[in-house]
Amino acid sequence: ETFPLDVLVNTAAEDLPRGVDPSRKENFLSDEDFKAVFGMTRSAFANLPLWKQQNLKKEKGLF
Rank of each mutant, 00 (worst) to 15 (best):
N55Y: 13
N47R: 12
S23P: 05
A46N: 13
D33Y: 03
A13S: 11
T2I: 10
V7P: 03
L50Y: 13
A12G: 09
T41L: 07
V37T: 10
A13C: 15
R24S: 09
F45S: 00
Q54I: 15
D33T: 07
R24V: 09
A44W: 04
D6G: 09
F28K: 03
F28G: 04
L50T: 10
K35W: 15
L62M: 09
K58W: 11
D6T: 09
P49D: 07
S43D: 14
E59Y: 05
P4S: 06
K25Q: 06
R24W: 08
G19Y: 08
N55M: 14
P49Q: 02
G39I: 01
K60P: 00
L16T: 06
E32W: 08
F34H: 00
L50A: 12
Q53V: 01
S23L: 15
T2Y: 15
E59P: 01
V20G: 04
G61M: 03
F34Q: 00
K60I: 06
L48K: 13
Q54R: 11
K57G: 01
L29G: 01
L5N: 04
T11R: 11
M40C: 06
D21W: 04
G39E: 09
V37S: 03
D21S: 06
A13K: 10
E26D: 04
N55K: 14
Q53T: 01
V37Q: 02
R24A: 10
D31N: 07
E26Y: 02
F45C: 01
L56T: 02
E14I: 11
S30I: 02
L16W: 07
P49A: 03
G61I: 02
F38S: 00
T11L: 10
P17N: 05
F28C: 08
L56D: 01
N55G: 11
K58A: 11
K35Y: 15
V37L: 13
E26K: 02
D15G: 11
G39Y: 02
S43W: 12
M40Q: 01
F3W: 14
P4K: 02
K25F: 06
A36R: 12
L56C: 04
A12M: 10
T2D: 03
E59V: 08
T41I: 07
K58H: 09
S30L: 02
F63Y: 14
R42L: 04
P22M: 05
F3D: 04
K35D: 11
V20W: 03
T2Q: 08
F34K: 00
